[in-house]
Design a protein around this nucleic acid. Structure first.
Lengths: 147, 147
DNA sequence: GACATTTATATAAGTAACTGATATAATTTT
DNA sequence: AAAATTATATCAGTTACTTATATAAATGTC
């Protein structure tokens, strides 16, 4: 019998190392799309909540207001979002994700899921179980990270 | 007593969703550096193994050979790597990471570790334990992903 | 062992996506 | 109403990419 390690405290450095690798792996995964990282991040944000103002998008991304304005114009040109006026504020622009925009995110997600499934096949049932048990905690960690 | 869920099979879609958020969180984390994603990725690769040929770096990144050549020239200009001839092949260039290059990676890593530590404080001991138990499996998953 | 092919990198020219500075127009504050 | 603030757009300049092509060393051919 192996010792119960469930109460072992979490070594932050080990965690960071593991996630450094996983993050790289994750980012590289869906290699088909030709969209930049920032572009995909904006689309992803909009896939969680749409519409959003340009100013709200600026807060979530790490680029300037000018960059977001131009990026959203390109996204609209490509049919992935629509820009509409905000009835409650004549200055503002509400960015709506289009069905086509949603499908970009969805298809990337399903490609990622397929590839992850292949990797997971290489794990033992115990390893899979350990990850499954940690998922709720990992999800909560991500939530904490979004303030 | 809670049911033993260690043998529960891992739901890939849940896993992908959790990691989608964690990846975004992770990427945004060290916001100080002004280096592009590809640049940091090359530096990180070199922090794991140095020297490497340009051609090897091309294989690990998702940009063209031309882009890598230019990127490494910029990294050398900034003192983060050195380009030296390969004694065993007159065509090749060996890219060595410099101490300054290593320190870029290290300081990003420690900043990330500090921020993660803060987040982890918000988890319960049980949650921390669950993640700790999953770390070996997650590390192996990342290894599987690197072929 | 010259000749053709392949491999490793560099260079050139063009483009896309950013930055910083400034402009415009709507809203809010005084 | 005027002044200050906020939300977005525009402009000019820069950086990091792309594709196509060049160069030079190594390898394979006969």
């Amino acid at each position: 019998m192996e010792p119960k390690t469930n109460l072992t405290d979490l070594n932050v450095s080990d965690f960071a190392m593991a996630f450094e690798e996983l993050t790289r792996l994750f980012i590289r995964m869906p290699s088909i799309e030709k969209l930049s990282f920032t572009t995909l991040s904006v689309l992803h944000t909009l896939s969680l909540r749409s519409p959003m103002r340009l100013s709200e998008l600026i807060a979530t991304e790490q680029v300037t207001q000018s960059a977001i304005t131009q990026l959203v114009i390109r996204l609209e040109r490509d049919g992935l979002v629509e820009r509409r006026p905000d009835p409650s504020d004549g200055r503002a622009v509400l960015v709506h994700i289009t069905p086509q925009g949603v499908s970009v995110i969805d298809s990337r997600r399903s490609e990622r899921i397929m590839r992850i499934a292949k990797l997971i096949e290489g794990l033992s049932p115990e390893e899979r179980g350990a990850i499954a048990s940690a998922l709720p905690a990992l999800t909560r960690l991500a939530e904490l990270g979004n303030e």
